[in-house]
Nucleic acid binder design. Structure first.
Lengths: 205, 205
DNA sequence: GTCGATTTGTTCGTATGTATC
DNA sequence: TGATACATACGAACAAATCGA
């Protein structure tokens, strides 16, 4: 009987609070940077205790909807479109899962590079780095800022930073020379670029 | 002077608590489904108040690392690889941002379909639905479960569910007939399939 | 089915550290 | 320097849900 009870009855107080705080921001409306009512005002406004308000704020803070500073107040912030839960709390990731994240990152990289090559934008300046992966990541990050849809860049950054923090690229084999991809992009050779990028996603290490 | 002080002094209590709880899970180690020490035990173990423990748990709960049940306890859960902050709190999204999410979803869909077509798997059964988008989303969701890397499916689901909840597909124009894509995939025609999927990402509505 | 123990959910009062004026 | 406003943190108390005897 107990396993049958996944119906998720009433939402808990802190969930209602997060919802109501967000509704309050939307309906006021409050723009990023503006100050929220104090915790005590919120607890009175929403008719709940300060502790519940705090739990709600903590959650919205971790999701980057809010930012609170002791002695000043709580302010509206700008959340990212995607977040990786493990990255929020600096949790170490097993190698197998890192590979999965890597493939997602490569997918984003491919989309970013192709989108850029199809545009008329000039290539942004970039310094030559030591390793293949440093060059690659720096290129994708800079191109990601140039394309119309910023979410690809955000998703790439989130994944790539996770891989960096977990030392994924240290000892990671490179499937070809950096100069190959570099010249393909310089020449804006779409077909060759796609071919090379597809090589990244295949397990070669 | 004040703006110069971004040095992020000492981490706050609840941040330390989330970190320590995660470390505790990792080092014990606790598997999904297993029970965490009670809030009171944790507060004594970590030498902080129960309120702070609760704030940490609330955060980990929203990130799906934990699941608390009143009267039972707090249990280890399995987080998703990616989450959309707005989706966690059911926040409404402006149309412009929905378009960005849609393009990410299409990118995932493309990766999923291509990955499937390159495999030797049989097409899973699926019922014919009413609308183009219903058919499309159902197909991608079912194919996503068949491919080796589950993160593409997870990212697709997260994005697609967000679009659904915001009524994105209602009134969304279809760039071609469903039968075209359906037969291309049935025939495992990779080139034609890619061609059609690329049409989805272009603004045609 | 009831009772009691356990555990999370929620509230309140109080004290402390920090920023602003 | 002092006063005020605010977030941070703690602990005690009670409510509600769950489980087992």
């Amino acid at each position: 009987m107990n396993t049958n009870k996944h119906i998720k009855s009433i939402p808990r107080m802190f969930e209602q609070v997060t919802q109501q705080i967000v509704d309050h921001i939307d309906s006021t409306p409050l723009e990023p940077g503006q100050k929220l009512p104090t915790e005590r005002q919120l607890s009175e406004l929403l008719q709940v205790s300060r502790s519940s308000v705090r739990e709600g704020i903590k959650v919205l803070e971790l999701l980057r909807f809010l930012e609170s500073k002791q002695g000043e107040g709580t302010f509206v912030a700008s959340p990212q479109p995607y977040i990786i839960p493990s990255r929020v709390i600096n949790k170490r990731i097993p190698t197998l899962e890192l590979d999965h994240y890597f493939q997602v990152a490569v997918m984003c990289a491919k989309t970013i590079v192709i989108s850029f090559l199809k545009s008329e934008e000039f290539l942004p300046d970039h310094q030559e780095r030591d390793s293949f992966w440093e060059n690659f990541c720096q290129l994708v990050s800079s191109l990601g800022k140039e394309i119309p849809n910023p979410y690809f860049h955000s998703l790439w950054e989130e994944s790539y930073q996770l891989l960096l923090a977990n030392h994924f690229f240290e000892g990671k084999q490179q499937p070809f020379e950096w100069s190959e991809l570099d010249t393909a992009i310089q020449k804006r050779d779409l077909q060759e670029t796609i071919y090379l990028l597809d090589l990244l996603g295949i397990e070669g290490a």
